[in-house]
Amino acid sequence: MSALLAFFAPNAWAVFRRNWLAWQKYAWSSVAINIVEPVAYFLALGFGLGAYLTLKGHGSLVQFIAPGLLGFTAMNTVTFDSCWGGFERLNFNGVYESMVTAPVQPEEIAAGEYLWEAFRATMYGTLFLGVIAAFGLVHSWWVLLCPAILAMTGIMFAIPSLWIALLVKTQEHLFYYFSFVVTPMTMIGGVFFPLDRLPRWLVDIAWFTPLFHAVRAFRQLVLGQMNWTIGADLLWMVVAIGILAILPVRTLRNRLAN
């Protein structure tokens, strides 16, 4: 069974429920942590730095980064949770081991984690969307599609994060992923500045990263400037999820086979 078909398995939802029960124990601090960071960037860059400059052809900085930070929020909340959570559940306390000792399959574990991260990305993303809407930076009813795309974004970022979490042998190695993958991806993802003055090769690299597509899609929906690229971006995400979703399953199966 593939990891995506396992979305329909009752045990994938039992794994989801495990995370939901755990999350309830620290819900308020989790909400605060995951909202304060993007809001701090939003205020400091959007109004602090934004007071000094406008982006030629793109309007105000605050209007530009608002949808960018929406993608950034979804990526961060999912990446940190999947990396630390996945590592802990595999290596400490035997959470995954206990699951496979019961009749839960590795693909159901991965599917449950994806569903959970879809939920987190939707929840925190929608909260942040509320913040930028309050500042009058949402201009279109298309924005109502954002929660569904946030959910897909959550699954997309959960896949590599969970995979890395299951691959590494020590927690320190997770920092390599943050420093060498997540941070550069953020810088060229179109979160903080437009990419049209970057070297062509850098933009080509950006095209292969998930954040680029998420941010471009959110920006169209928030601004209401719809064009064909959103179709390409959504297709990119669907294909990436379809191809890569199996990787954490394989790694989990190997790690639990000894």
Binding site: L21, A22, V95, S98
Partner: peptide, 13 residues
């Protein structure tokens, strides 16, 4: 039913 050697209870629950 299985009781594994290391205590494997979920500390977050």
């Amino acid at each position: 039913g299985v009781v594994v050697q290391e205590t494997a209870l979920d500390p977050e629950l």
